[in-house]
Computed example of a mutant assay.
Amino acid sequence: MPIDVMMPFYGDVAQFQQAVTSVLGQRDGDLRLVVVDDCYPDPQPREWLAALTDPRVHYVRNETNLGVNGNFRRCTELVEADHFVVMGCDDVMLPDYLGTVRTLAARHADASVIAPGVEVIDDHDRPVRPLGDRIKSVLSPGEPTVLSGEAMATSLYRGNWTYFPSLLWRTAPVREVGFRSGLEIVLDLALLVDLAAAGGSLVYDPTVVFRYRRHDASVSSVQAVDGRRFAEENDFFAGEARRCAERGWPRAARAARLHATSRLNHLQSRVAGAAGRLRAASPAR
């Protein structure tokens, strides 16, 4: 059965074309690609897709701009397959991505989500390892692993080492849980821990089959600069600590209260911002 690749679109057209090409170039071609255009003002992406004349490609344009959370919700509403991916319109699937996650999903039929290995790239397709991604690599399991329940939640509260656009989701449990409203930065983490609370599991395999693009224009990068990212994260983790305590998950509650990786990212952002202000204030030499 096809895997649905849902691609919310609003962004760089060249990177979008690269993302689409990487999907259609999968060795396992049993897929349906659905591009969900969040009212991008330029008709070029729509015209380019139509010129592909590939029956696997479907284009949907929202009537109004829904934003990040709203467009993710729209994508899940449009899913028809048993498994789906919500892929970034600037990311890249390596040729064996779909074949790898499909095999893992067949091997772990009850898993709610499959997390493959990821390589991080910059705007010029060069592999990069910023501090945050080096921390993710330390926090992620070093070998194929299945996590569920409190162990899954604890691991993710310590630091969300997954990359949302690379994840393969099983449609039924995601539809039951759904994305929480009002979140933009931690909506993927919220969905993962809600699935853990509902009895779901996460399967991780470190085989690298996906390229995640890290750049300064991302929502998380922009909101880190003005502090909105960390305000959202602090509120989220405080609520999670209470929920885990009520659920009888003491280790998860402790990890949520500490949310050490989020605090470290906040500190790094403040230091970088202070350094930038000092450079701006320094007289020209």
Rank of each mutant, 00 (worst) to 15 (best):
V20N: 03
V20W: 02
T21W: 03
S22V: 11
V23E: 00
V23Q: 00
V23S: 03
L24Y: 06
L24H: 03
L24G: 01
L24T: 06
L24M: 11
G25W: 13
Q26Y: 07
R27P: 02
R27H: 15
D28T: 07
D28N: 10
D28P: 00
G29F: 05
D30E: 15
D30N: 14
L31D: 02
R32T: 14
L33K: 03
L33P: 00
L33F: 04
V34N: 02
V35G: 00
V36A: 02
D37T: 07
D38G: 04
C39S: 06
C39P: 02
C39L: 14
C39R: 14
Y40F: 15
Y40V: 10
Y40N: 07
Y40C: 13
P41N: 09
Q44S: 14
Q44H: 08
Q44M: 07
P45Q: 09
R46M: 13
R46W: 08
R46L: 11
E47Y: 03
E47K: 08
W48P: 02
A50W: 07
L52Y: 04
L52F: 06
T53V: 12
T53H: 12
T53G: 05
D54M: 08
D54W: 11
P55Q: 06
P55D: 13
R56T: 08
H58C: 12
H58I: 11
Y59S: 07
V60H: 12
R61D: 04
N62Y: 07
N62A: 15
N62T: 15
N62K: 09
T64L: 08
N65G: 14
N65R: 14
G67L: 04
V68E: 05
V68P: 00
V68C: 04
G70T: 10
N71I: 13
N71C: 14
F72A: 10
R73V: 15
R73G: 15
R73S: 10
R74E: 14
R74I: 13
